[in-house]
Design a protein around this nucleic acid. Structure first.
Lengths: 336, 336
DNA sequence: GCAGAATATTGTAGCGCTACAAAACACGGA
DNA sequence: TCCGTGTTTTGTAGCGCTACAATATTCTGC
């Protein structure tokens, strides 16, 4: 024997006995209701709920080799950044009879640990953010054949991907600033980048600015992309490079809001003295005054697509190597 | 047979064969390393990692009746409100060899669904927020004997609880405003309250204000506690009751920040024209100008304690009925 | 009333892992 | 050499569930 069997444990067996049917009928009632006659099904469900029976997912998973749980790794819940993404995933998955569970991971090694947990749980699929992952974790995923979607990235998927072009978005935003007459544009990068979502923006920015015949040396890095305080730091550092810089491209709206707070303290008028561009369409971007001009990724849709890809894989449709573009929009507000 | 057996599946058995030991030795290597000789252990671990073996948690859970996964239900990830709480849980749990998985649930019925998923997964314990839950879900938890911690609340736990006294905090904040000479204090309640964490504040506020001989009719409700826009709405509604009101107690710092934004638009000086009090010590409270006077719950510690209680339960220490107070602090900043 | 098809239900045989007890081994003292 | 003690390893017997095939039941049409 294994577990010190608790007599009160409600199993499929006990439901079957109480309902006067075989365990298989109980199993079918939950997994394939249409295979069971309505009358029988209702009786089983009634007894099951009276007894407080909840199918043991661990046992079912083991027996069937299938799972209706999908795991998602989220880098941070500090801000609303992933709010719509998670909502999109959750809404879609629930409607398909699946369940979404989340793990937080700040760093690639934490992400690897999260992946290991999900693989240990034998989930139906895993959604990751970004395209920078620990190679051991990837090997594991490849070996176990777990369906994986990378999101917020677009190129060169490990398995499947859904996102938008960071390059295009960087280009669009920089161009906007150039077109509105800014000449001394500063760029704020994030150097603690886990997911490669930020680092690739720098060269695009450079190329874009140089192409317009402008200087591209106003680039600083901050160690936080989701803290307001990074805004003040970035401003300070850009001032050190060029006190007269007239525009700033931030890695997120949070940093942009931090910049606005600091401008307030310094008495700088936005956008007259400084044009401020954010990224992500966080809630604060539309609520703060002046409103922040930003990149709006279609995060809700991204979450949905990610789940669709995983769920469809389970039903045989193979999306291996597929990368889905959910696009983005430049939202023009008062700050730039 | 059950599952169409995939020959490439790496099981404990295949690791055992490759390492020339019995499956039990492999099992022990992972679960009770000290029972296995160092030499053997290393060989097994080496082979396991070469083969890309990850213990099947579903099978282990089934066989042992134990689980090293703890589930937490979080109402929202829209703001930083639960950031430190989740960090506290995560950090602590990891150091104990457990894993934390999250589910989001906005409403009691979503919470119930999340609980069902966790129970189906046979997790080691569940952390909930607040004390308002669906009765079916509670019955289920009671029947299955799953350890449950309610957090952010203090009184009358279903099983275990960790939190602070909302009543004391409301009292402290209201008293602060009264002591600093405010006479026409407005209160913003949240009427979409899932977790009973907000509703109980209203009567305390009333009593407190009346006890000081002041009017207590300046109370409005908003339907969002985590959106900036609620701040503008609240301000408007309080103006309708009394255009001369001179202080406002908000349900969260987010609402308070929304109030500050609206004050900015109206040209009201804070705290001269209006004293603004927040709640929760969200990051924005310290970053915005003026800084928001707020209630700081010790969320990180709360998360830690919640996990301690669950983990200790697994090792036999019974905390049933125990409620742990993690306290709070009033953080005085410029806004009030 | 009956063959044949369609529908509903049920044994059987594990899925991959672990608790427990039993067995094998190592070591020192008599 | 043998015995007792402590350490390390290994069979055995399931945990609760499901795929599949086989059986039982009901429903046609003639």
């Amino acid at each position: 024997m294994t577990k010190p069997r608790n007599d009160e444990t409600v199993t499929m067996q006990s439901v079957a006995v109480a309902a006067g049917v075989s365990p298989m009928t109980v199993s079918n009632t939950f997994r394939y209701p249409e295979r069971v006659q309505e009358e029988t099904r209702e009786r089983v469900l009634k007894i099951a709920s009276e007894l407080g029976y909840v199918p043991n997912h661990a046992a079912g998973n083991l027996a069937s080799g299938q799972s209706r749980v999908i795991g998602a790794v989220i880098p941070s819940i500090k801000n609303s950044s992933f709010y719509n993404y998670v909502r999109g995933m959750q809404d879609h998955v629930t409607s398909q009879g699946y369940q979404l569970i989340l793990k937080l991971a700040d760093t690639v090694s934490q992400e690897a640990a999260a992946i290991r947990t999900f693989v240990g749980l034998r989930v139906a699929g895993i959604a990751l953010v970004g395209d920078e992952h620990e190679s051991d974790a990837l090997t594991l995923l490849r070996k176990t054949g777990t369906p994986v979607v990378e999101s917020w990235v677009y190129n060169d998927p490990f398995d499947m991907a859904v996102g938008y072009s960071t390059a295009d978005a960087t280009h669009a935003m920089t161009s906007l600033l150039i077109e509105t007459g800014r000449q001394r544009i500063g760029f704020v990068g994030y150097d603690g980048d886990v997911s490669h979502r930020y680092t690739e923006r720098v060269p695009i920015f450079k190329r874009c600015v140089e192409h317009a015949g402008l200087d591209s040396h106003r680039i600083v890095l901050v160690d936080q992309a989701d803290g307001f305080s990074a805004g003040a730091k970035a401003l300070e550092r850009l001032c050190a490079i060029d006190p007269e810089f007239d525009a700033i491209v931030c890695p997120t709206d949070i940093v942009a809001a931090g910049v606005l707070f600091e401008c307030g303290r310094r008495g700088w008028k936005v956008p007259d003295r400084l044009a401020v561009a954010g990224w992500g369409d966080y809630e604060i971007a539309s609520e703060i005054t002046p409103g922040i001009t930003t990149i709006q990724p279609h995060s809700y849709e991204m979450g949905q697509r990610a789940m669709t890809m995983i769920v469809e894989r389970a039903s045989g449709i193979d999306h291996r190597g597929v990368s889905h573009d959910t696009g983005f929009q430049v939202l023009r507000r008062e700050s730039a």
